[in-house]
Design a protein around this nucleic acid. Structure first.
Lengths: 120, 120
DNA sequence: TACCGACCTCGAGCAGCTTTAGGTCAAGCC
DNA sequence: GGCTTGACCTAAAGCTGCTCGAGGTCGGTA
């Protein structure tokens, strides 16, 4: 699979994928005879998970820790699970915060509405 | 009002407030005889709104544009309203995205659960 | 009087990419 | 065959939005 396709499917950008590889977030991707990266399904899955973690606010350094666990094989699953649980909690907090901020925006919009007096 | 109090109430950090003033996101805050910033209620309101916009993903440059409109007085309210509407839409999209990512995390957790076989 | 805590400025540092410059290679067209 | 196009490559600099550290000024208090 070409890098452009992986980018589209994982939700990362091409640059971000290269950056992630360079900084050790994913194992070195195998190369074709022309030096181009050739991704397999496992690479795609991993990058998609990384994309989810990143988009939900995990830092690269936490992701690196998670990647290290991953390389440790199945016996690190309980640790990985608790890392994800912790992250899911912080995501829930963040989502609640966004909801509140959303409300504030709505109230502000309502005020503007009252001032200019058009239909919503 | 002291800067520490404004920080706590608005949700910004002390450094961020100073940074926002320096980069023209809020009008110059009045100073006491000792050179310290003295915030009034209007300053607090504005910074709280900025905080909401920022936390929901608006860029500083968009916030600057919004601040410029604000300085233009009441006749810019329709423009401000449409800016906020647009931003609220993009926030909703972002929230939906987060929900999907949240689901992905949950599925991954479920898999781990099945592998290690404990109670959820 | 000497220290503490809260503020100040300015400049450097940091995360997490993105952009740019300069290059390789295969495929498609004339 | 030669030329262009487009997708990829690397390394390095640039960007955003702060944060942190150094070094300094106050007012209050033991």
């Amino acid at each position: 699979m070409r890098i452009a396709e992986v980018a589209e499917r994982s939700g990362l950008t091409v640059s971000a994928i290269r950056y992630y590889e360079k900084s050790g977030l994913c194992p070195p991707i195998s190369r074709g005879p022309d030096g181009k990266r050739q991704f397999n399904a496992t690479d795609l899955d991993w990058l998609t998970l990384l994309s989810s973690l990143r988009e939900t606010g995990m830092t690269l350094s936490d992701m690196r820790a998670f990647a290290t666990l991953y390389r440790g094989g199945d016996e690190t699953i309980p640790e990985r699970k608790s890392a994800l649980l912790k992250h899911r909690d912080s995501l829930a907090i963040r989502q609640a915060q966004l909801d509140r901020r959303h409300d504030i925006l709505n109230r502000k919009l309502k005020k503007y509405q009252e001032i200019i007096g058009e239909s919503p």
